[in-house]
Design a protein around this nucleic acid. Sequence first.
DNA 1: CCATGTGAACTACTTCACAGCC
DNA 2: GGCTGTGAAGTAGTTCACATGG
Lengths: 253, 253
Amino acid sequence: MATGRTHRPATRSRGIPEATVARLPLYLRALTALSERSVPTVSSEELAAAAGVNSAKLRKDFSYLGSYGTRGVGYDVEYLVYQISRELGLTQDWPVVIVGIGNLGAALANYGGFASRGFRVAALIDADPAMAGKPVAGIPVQHTDDLERIIQDNGVSIGVIATPAGAAQPVCDRLVAAGVTSILNFAPTVLSVPDGVDVRKVDLSIELQILAFHEQRKAGEESGADAAVPAATARKASAEQGPDGDVPAVMPA
Amino acid sequence: MATGRTHRPATRSRGIPEATVARLPLYLRALTALSERSVPTVSSEELAAAAGVNSAKLRKDFSYLGSYGTRGVGYDVEYLVYQISRELGLTQDWPVVIVGIGNLGAALANYGGFASRGFRVAALIDADPAMAGKPVAGIPVQHTDDLERIIQDNGVSIGVIATPAGAAQPVCDRLVAAGVTSILNFAPTVLSVPDGVDVRKVDLSIELQILAFHEQRKAGEESGADAAVPAATARKASAEQGPDGDVPAVMPA
DNA sequence: CCATGTGAACTACTTCACAGCC
DNA sequence: GGCTGTGAAGTAGTTCACATGG
């Protein structure tokens, strides 16, 4: 097995901070839009505005990748697109399987943005025999029985779980046993996985609950309260949406 | 005990850290499961394991809410469920509208976990006249023209945007103008909103890209990734899934 | 005794502010 | 002159470790 996993990222030449990695896709999207409009260069200020972050943060983020800008000028759009894509590993092909083809699974399968960036839906898998063979988004659904074979035949290392909560952990175990090392979980459950496997979760109800918390607070504020704190909530710059330091959220069929 | 009724959501006390708020729904879910199994009390250790966090963090999180545990014993499940629900504002009813009833919007509308916790789908809205009147998840779809009226009639303060990217900002503007102050955005766009409005985003392609980054790194590790770069990865303990400090992700129809 | 609750130490991330270079 | 790149300062979040109190 992977042995060298013990040492945490050294203090010095450490890799790219996780918070920065999480923003790279955001920058990439903004850059792609600029690229399509044939904009040759951008300043950190402009790009930051487009990505909804502040420019100091953006420059710091880019500084972890290297010095890809030109002082007094800005960043070359095409070059940055390439560098970020490479850093994110999007210059290679990532076959992905989606397990659980209910409402959500189907929605994911139909998502266009998938193919656009290195990701390819290699297979759709569902436990319902009635679904087998039925095409969703042009791809025939296969039965769970063949999960292991499908993973191996296609060299899949990223799996998306869109099953009901109860099925998620067993499916996860099988995916991992078959060789999947990255999982995107839409089921409202905490998955346990061995070391070396990454899990990210997307959970709608969690997101809504976080919003409700702030919403409630806004309501209470209007009444009494005042002085002390700037009543205007202003929890955060309008620009900086949700993505700072939280949990994601959605659910399965 | 101690200071009598402490001031929790008081107007003064800086409030609960955002990172803690983001974990409360996780604790709540774990507690609800325990409650259903009629478990009377839990220790921080047990509950932390169920929620996928470490126990010190959980205790610290709870300490922001107040002293709801009993030393030497643990936490009363029912009492904690109530306290967290109240803190999150789930003891009240939150009417929600979903705008954009494509594949994803329909999936969201069908999500059961919605109703379970204070959230109620008050209306489904779509720009396609052909959709108008058609029931999705038992709720008739209404046309975008009536958006403002729907928001006001139902006293909606939370809106979910599941439209294509291009439609998201205009829809967002209308929602905000009509009185919505919290938005959950599934469209792959940065929304700009006035101060006082919260936006959270869920973006599938971003999540996949983050996974690809780590996946790529794992791959490089095995092969002869020479000394030069810190091959380490070891991004995080297996337990702590995705939720620490990142961006969420999904997409629209 | 045992598990909570919490100061204190530590780590991660953000923001500032300005030197460096085009 | 203008904008990048980055040390340094500031802030938020996590973990430790132990006093506290049922």
